[in-house]
Design a protein around this nucleic acid. Structure first.
Lengths: 228, 228
DNA sequence: CTTTAATTCATACGTTCGTTTTAATCATAG
DNA sequence: CTATGATTAAAACGAACGTATGAATTAAAG
């Protein structure tokens, strides 16, 4: 005893929760759905995690910890190679968003299921989720933000922050909507099967993000200019 | 009798529902919260709308009907002036996304509250919401999609559809996140008060969207090319 | 006025929610 | 073996949910 007994009940619950939260949202998923799908007793969630909220947080933590460490690792590597010189915007965008998207192909890291969950949850109204994600994301966000400031010294910082914002939104949608938004818009991408789709999504999204990031600066109608 | 008695109870419920659905999501908002905030009896929602789902749909319809009619009107006008020639991409983007964003300044049309609700709901997991929005959006989507095809004849249609997709995501986030994503990312836009923020958001987002829309086409690693 | 339909109200229904409790089962150490 | 702690299981808890009912109230018509 006293050893960390990593029974598979925990993992089964996390897997079921991840998939159901992705499909129906946090409020729309009940503990009975989760435990039923996981094939475990109802009380198991509270025993292993303490509460439904704690389960949601743990479901994110086991994926985000790896993702953000990987993002840090990639950034460290690129900056070491750059030897003090600013990175290229394309490198930074790929380090942040490319690393995320490549998770989708790694079933061991949650695959597309987690990515869709993340995409949807970034607009999730629940207070505790937003607060949790803010804490989890703060460190890596600041690092990449700084890298972008150095890479684009002529672009006002406020503008860069906004465009990072926009890039997050486009990426979130691209992920969450791989089959959700198609329902909303009733679009159909012809000539592509589902295996192709993800491989092609990455370069498509990267082109779009970089185009937006490097777009000409906006002209405001009034006279006040944004500071740098 | 027999006249359409447009009492203010209906409107009070719609206003309260719009705000609460925006703040806490559909599943996270109860009928008791809504009726309490509206200052009406609990049974009033089922009397006036029939069900909670029907209330949600009506809350969207009263805003989306105007928005999509306005989008159609603007597109008709531009195409009439173009006299058969293709529109400029910037015109099309402004007609679709600019019209949406300008709603935020019109309190009579729901203002920022509705825009945030819409932004969040586009990723809402609930099936009936997505199905409803798909129906409401289909017509205007197809029109703008066609306009973009004509404006960008050299860009593969599949690419345009994806980029429309990305633009929707960026816009949705920009709206929903005007104070929600700031919590997630812990970013602070200095040097701007809240009245400025919205006025400047429009040109900022437009620059980004157009930069992404007109970005160089992605290079796929395999040989198969997307059709036109 | 009276009549009639529309609306509001208080209240209750049956269900489902997240959580807790208590007992049963399992695994391991001595 | 017995003893001990970890895990699973069945059952119940009170609270909150969306909805339905029937009476009270309001407003307009004749």
């Amino acid at each position: 005893m006293a050893e960390i007994r990593t029974g598979d009940t925990r993992e089964r619950i996390l897997d079921a929760g991840e998939r159901l939260f992705m499909a129906h949202g946090y409020e729309g998923t009940s503990m009975r759905q989760i435990t039923s799908e996981a094939g475990v007793n109802l009380a198991a969630v509270n025993y292993h995690f303490g509460s439904k909220e704690a389960l949601m947080q743990e479901a994110f933590r086991r994926r985000l910890d790896w993702l953000n460490e990987e993002r840090m690792r990639v950034l460290d590597l690129m900056e070491a190679e750059a030897d003090g010189k600013p990175l290229k915007p394309s490198q930074i965008v790929d380090g942040f968003f490319g690393t995320l998207l490549r998770m989708a192909g790694d079933e061991k890291r949650g695959g597309v299921t987690f990515l869709r969950l993340l995409g949807r949850t970034l607009t999730e109204p629940s207070e505790f989720i937003r607060a949790f994600l803010a804490h989890e994301y703060k460190e890596v966000m600041d690092r990449y933000k700084e890298a972008l400031f150095r890479a684009l010294p002529d672009v006002p910082k406020a503008e860069i922050v906004w465009r990072f914002h926009f890039m997050l939104g486009a990426t979130s949608y691209a992920i969450a909507g791989t089959d959700a938004l198609r329902l909303v818009t009733d679009w159909q991408i012809e000539d592509e099967d589902s295996t192709d789709r993800l491989d092609r999504l990455v370069p498509r999204l990267m082109s779009f993000l970089l185009g937006g990031l490097r777009a000409p600066l906006p002209q405001f109608s009034d006279t006040t200019a944004a500071s740098n």
